[in-house]
Amino acid sequence: MSSALSREDVAHLANLARISLSEDELDRLGAELPAILDHVAAVQGVVDAAGDVEPMSHPVPVANVFREDVVRPGLTPDEALSGAPASEEQRFLVPKILGEE
């Protein structure tokens, strides 16, 4: 796969990652990332050559790790809000939200 990554691509990725990168940062990442991608893209060839291989998402092969449905003490509202940049009425105060989910 070609790892060509345009400046627009980087800007799009930064937007997905919610980071308002400066013009300089976009330039620099646009220059750095292709070299890194060229290196890491090698994994495809390795996998193609290896044939049928299961992906490993967890280094420890366990399943069914569950918790009983029993209430545990959590945080007080004061603790919960202790790091908040702003709060009001026992809620986290954030700037106006534009998009809707």
Binding site: F92, L93, V94, K96, I97, E100
Partner: peptide, 12 residues
């Protein structure tokens, strides 16, 4: 509603 609001308050 969301439009025209100054800010939002979040309850988790």
């Amino acid at each position: 509603r969301i439009h025209g609001a100054d800010h939002s308050l979040l309850d988790y």
